[in-house]
Amino acid sequence: MELLREAAMWLGWVILSPEEAFDSYIAEKRSAMLPVLIYTIISYSLGSLILRNISSWGIMAPLSPILGPLSYVTGVTILGISLVNLVVYTGFVHLIAGLMGHHEGRWESFIGLVGFSSLPHLIPSTLLASYVITPNPWIFVVGITLMLVTFIWSVYMVIVAAAVNYGMDKGRAFLASVISVVLALLLLSVISRVWRW
């Protein structure tokens, strides 16, 4: 019971005041188990629920008998990709922060903080879950639209996480956690295009 209460306290704290919560999380050297568990649940749910939502459309009806197993496969696939992404992304930002002269942050803590930063995605996830029970098309439309808003919120939380973990100001945290990743992806895309040609 105490564990549940403590988990609830952390979740509420991260939502209300991420900077303060992240600071305490690092100071107390908390395990990344809770945030990674949250990240895992949200990744799986979103992957599976998007397919379940789409499956209720007439166009997917011929695939109806296999949609059940397919939704589990999609959920697990999205979860796998998200976990790899979590490790690769946090590792990359950790490297960039180091190159920018910020060596004080721990990678394990950053994994936890990024895990917490997935919390905003719980809003579209809950809406998509409601759609499974009450298939009103508006719930799906609002859920998908909200994904954009919660993505921005989530990115903001990642910037806060990088700032707190590596002791940077938010501008430098934005460079390390967003701009560097965008540049790396652009570079990868150029390299892959050159490679294909």
């Binding site: 939502i15 799986y44 749910s45 499974v132």
Partner: peptide, 17 residues
Amino acid sequence: IGYVVMAMLVFSLVASV
């Protein structure tokens, strides 16, 4: 707020499985 978040997590997970 944490309990609400937890309820949302459980609801999403149940609906997806």
